[in-house]
């Protein structure tokens, strides 16, 4: 890959030209696919992050109360 090609690809990416790609008559199906994928992944990440925070908070609360798993 020569410099001019790299330069073209970099400028194309930075200017987000790819977002104005002509995706033809089925563009709606393509964008819908990527939209659904982004939504599902975002929902998964949000669920895991929020659940992790909830568990960490509950754990910290119980430990702050001096609860131990065993009496020894």
């Amino acid at each position: 890959m020569n410099f001019s090609t790299m330069n073209f690809l970099t400028m194309n990416f930075l200017s987000m030209n790819f977002l104005s790609l002509d995706l033809g008559p089925y563009a709606g199906f393509i964008w819908a696919s990527y939209g659904v994928a982004a939504s599902i992944v975002a929902a998964l990440i949000a669920w895991l992050v929020l659940d992790g925070r909830r568990q960490a908070r509950a754990l910290a609360d119980l430990e702050a109360r001096g609860i131990k798993r065993r009496s020894a």
Binding site: V41, Q55, R69
Partner: peptide, 27 residues
């Protein structure tokens, strides 16, 4: 890589959830 990261995070949450349950039983 995304799946591995999500799985690892979910496993961490599950370990914490079980610890919380164990502490609640201890309480």
């Amino acid at each position: 890589l995304l799946f591995l990261a999500l799985h690892l995070k979910a496993m961490r949450n599950e370990v914490m959830r079980r610890r919380v349950k164990a502490l609640q039983l201890a309480a």
